[in-house]
């Protein structure tokens, strides 16, 4: 589904990713871990097509097409979804209005009929129930005044509504207390499917107790320095990133 080869990415002419290789198959869950400043979020942003992230070398293929030329919306319509680390607040735009616009944009692109307000409401209420989110969520302005936990749940709600083929969750666990983390994890697990791949970008092992990954990769200084199964994450937690003997250029120390 996703094939990344020798990927180099620069932001403001500064090289962040320096040769990433990664292959993700449908149905798989991959966790990408690493200290701050290792390039985890850059990888997530590049997949979603953020402006200013320049691929300088290597290839980024998704479902047999080269990704770089495509706009963010084209990628979304082709089934790529990024759950933002810091979801954007948009005052004046109701959550429901936004979700329906997004869903209908994607349906229109796929040649499916648009959902009218009633069908949409019925559909989205099912998703809200699944994620244990109150209906009032729909009528609030998009992320405006949401708590950290509410914002992250709203990201998962969008994922549940848009049903992507490849979902990238960028530090979705950060800033969540344990109860909120469990709710988010339940949502993600409910969305596991044989034709859907999920990439979890995370600093901590904690999330992986609730969402069990098939593969774990450790990113440091713009490269994947180690890959393994779930045990790698546990080992990391026990020994810290220092164990990998990295030249430490992270701004913050890693605290498990």
């Amino acid at each position: 589904m996703l094939e990344i080869k020798d990927l180099h990415v620069s932001v403001d002419d500064k090289a962040i990713l320096k040769g990433i290789d990664l292959t993700v198959k449908p149905g798989e869950i991959h966790a990408i871990m690493g200290p701050n400043g290792s390039g985890k979020s850059t990888l997530a942003q590049v997949l979603a097509g953020r402006e200013g992230y320049r691929v300088t070398q290597g290839s980024l293929r998704y479902l047999d097409s080269d990704l770089p030329p495509f706009s963010p919306e084209a990628r979304a319509r082709a089934g790529i979804f990024l759950a933002f680390q810091y979801p954007i607040e948009i005052p004046g735009v109701a959550n429901a209005q936004f979700l329906r616009s997004a869903l209908n944009s994607q349906r229109g692109y796929r040649g499916e009929p648009e959902l009218d307000a009633f069908d949409f409401l019925e559909f989205v209420k099912g998703r809200l129930a699944m994620l244990e989110i109150d209906d009032s969520f729909l009528y609030r302005s998009l992320n405006e005044g949401f708590s950290g936990g509410e914002k992250k749940r709203n990201e998962i709600l969008q994922m549940a509504v848009l049903e992507p083929r490849l979902a990238i969750l960028d530090e979705t666990d950060s800033g969540l207390d344990i109860d909120a983390l469990k709710v988010v994890a339940r949502g993600v697990n409910a969305l596991r499917a044989p034709d859907r791949a999920i990439i979890l970008v995370t600093h901590y092992q904690r999330l992986l107790e609730y969402i069990v990954p098939d593969r774990v990769h450790v990113l440091a200084e713009g490269r994947i320095v180690r890959s393994g199964d779930r045990d790698l994450a546990l080992e990391l937690e026990a020994k810290g990133y220092g164990w990998l003997n990295l030249r430490n250029n992270c701004e913050e120390p890693f605290i498990p």
């Binding site: 402006e51 919306e73 979304a76 979804f81 990024l82 933002f84 948009i90 936004f98």
Partner: peptide
């Protein structure tokens, strides 16, 4: 960018 990343094209995103 947030709206676009959800599949909404630029013109509609601006309108929203």
């Amino acid at each position: 960018f947030y709206l676009q990343s959800r599949g909404i094209d630029l013109a509609l995103a601006r309108q929203l």
